[in-house]
């Protein structure tokens, strides 16, 4: 009897490709949300596999807070041109300048919540009816209840108590005009799966993910990279430390971790031994017990 065992990475890959193809088939105008982070990089790799030898049949959309690491935007532009994809950028700075959103004024102001309006505006402007995101259920407890095909009403809101059931591999993407869907092909992946998959597939990553020397300040327990957006405040000292980033968000809130992991293997070992989840150093999630759920209801990624 031949061996038809399928490894966990092949199962997850097959499932994600299935979901990407369902998205292309069920919606008029999908778009892939690209943050420059590893999850969206893996998503693009999977989308290439799903439609090969044709090109990915949807554009990439980056919601740009204006507080980017340089390495992220360089990587983004190169990747989009390599795979011949159209790149659309939704600018939070522009939304602030045009007065559509108001910048937070407090000491710990963040543009995180402002992304919501820019995202919804960009989806409406492009008339996109499905936005593919790299969200995973293991990231945060509100995400653990998220569907692969997640319905959003005409205001872009998520109603977690009234979600469509998802059975087997049957996804219901029907909706009325003005509504849209968020689609999460990586729902069943864990952080470890993503790293193992990137290693197996030899997927190149932005250099920020690997350990390097960098000037940082410690603010509210989070280690922030010193940049044009983050300058030391009174009482804060600049230190040079060997660090890497576990997620790739807005530079004003995404914390670095001390690390010597400068290869994929070392990162995987570090992830295996990690004692905090990868969002554990994101200031945006620490605001309250249900910070993520509240943002998601409003239309966050």
């Amino acid at each position: 009897m031949p061996d038809y065992n399928v490894t966990h990475l092949n199962q997850l890959e097959s499932e994600a490709i299935f979901v990407l193809r369902e998205t292309a088939a069920q919606f008029e105008k999908p778009v892939l949300l690209f943050s420059g982070g590893k999850d969206s990089i893996v998503m693009i790799h999977l989308a290439r596999k799903a439609f090969w030898p044709a090109r990915i049949p949807f554009p990439l959309l980056h919601i740009d807070t204006g507080h980017n690491f340089r390495e992220t935007t360089d990587y983004r532009d190169n990747l989009a041109s390599d795979i011949g994809a159209k790149l659309v950028v939704g600018s939070v700075q522009k939304a602030i300048d045009e007065g559509r959103v108001l910048e937070e004024k407090s000491q710990n102001a963040s543009r995180n919540a402002l992304q919501i309006q820019t995202l919804l505006d960009s989806l409406e402007e492009g008339q996109y009816d499905a936005a593919l995101g790299g969200g995973r259920r293991d990231e945060e407890k509100a995400r653990a209840k998220e569907r692969f095909f997640s319905h959003r009403d005409e205001f872009g809101q998520w109603d977690p108590k009234n979600q469509r059931p998802e059975l087997w591999n049957i996804f219901n993407g029907r909706m009325t005009a003005g509504e849209h869907f968020r689609v999460f092909p990586l729902s069943n992946w864990t952080e470890m799966d993503v790293w193992q998959y990137m290693k197996r597939e030899n997927i190149p990553l932005p250099s920020l993910y690997f350990a390097h020397e960098r000037e940082v300040v410690i603010r509210n327990g989070t280690m922030l990279a010193v940049s044009e957006f983050v300058q030391p405040r009174e009482g804060e000292a600049i230190e040079t430390r060997r660090v890497r980033f576990r997620t790739m968000g807005d530079a004003t809130i995404t914390g670095a971790v001390d690390s010597n992991a400068d290869t994929m293997d070392l990162i995987i070992e570090e992830v295996a031994a990690a004692i905090e989840t990868e969002r554990g150093n994101r200031a945006d999630d620490k605001r309250s017990e249900s910070a993520m759920e509240d943002r998601k209801k409003q239309g966050y990624f």
Partner: peptide
């Protein structure tokens, strides 16, 4: 596993939660 605010408040699980 009770990830939603309503679940925590009411002390019940109202949905399928996926854990890894």
């Amino acid at each position: 596993t009770d990830g939603l605010r309503a679940e925590r408040e009411q002390g019940i699980t109202i949905d399928v939660a996926y854990r890894y």
